[in-house]
Amino acid sequence: MNKADQKSAGLVVFVLLVVAAGFLVYMSVGQVGLDDEGVGIDLGYRLNVNTASAAELQVLPGIGPTIAENIVSYREAHGAFESFEQLDDVSRIGAKTRAKFQPYIKLGENDTP
């Protein structure tokens, strides 16, 4: 196998791993989701924003890869979120974005949205 073939095979394996990881996150956090119109629906589960990975955060309405990484980075730099409003301090999150996903998150084990 030449170098080009090795790189192609490596890329295919990487893509398959990313897809598999995404599927596992979807299955484990599948209780939060979007309806057919892209509107968030509550399926009885709230994600702990203080412990969730970037991949898990991406299932929330309005949260893509960049904002998910911003949440994790902010949390690592400043510690756990103590209020929902503190999420507004994260780059690319404001009150409107937070309003989209706040019903689906919690800050601790017993918090309410």
Rank of each mutant, 00 (worst) to 15 (best):
Y74V: 01
L11K: 14
V32K: 03
Y104G: 05
A21H: 14
D89S: 06
V29C: 07
G38K: 06
E82D: 03
L107C: 03
E56C: 04
Y74H: 13
L57V: 11
V12D: 11
K3R: 14
L43Y: 00
Q102W: 00
E56W: 02
I41K: 10
A9M: 10
Q58S: 06
A21V: 12
F14G: 08
D89L: 10
V13Y: 09
N50K: 01
T112L: 09
L43N: 09
G10E: 13
A77Q: 13
S28T: 14
S28L: 11
Y26R: 14
K3I: 15
A77S: 10
G10F: 03
K96D: 13
R92K: 08
Q31E: 11
R92V: 02
A55M: 12
V29N: 11
N110S: 09
I63H: 05
D5H: 07
T112Y: 05
V19P: 04
A21D: 12
A55N: 06
T51D: 00
I105P: 06
A68K: 12
E76S: 08
A4R: 10
I67V: 15
P113Q: 05
V90L: 02
D5L: 13
N110P: 00
P103E: 05
Y74W: 13
D5K: 13
A21Y: 14
G79Y: 06
V72Q: 02
Y45M: 14
E85D: 15
N70G: 04
A77F: 00
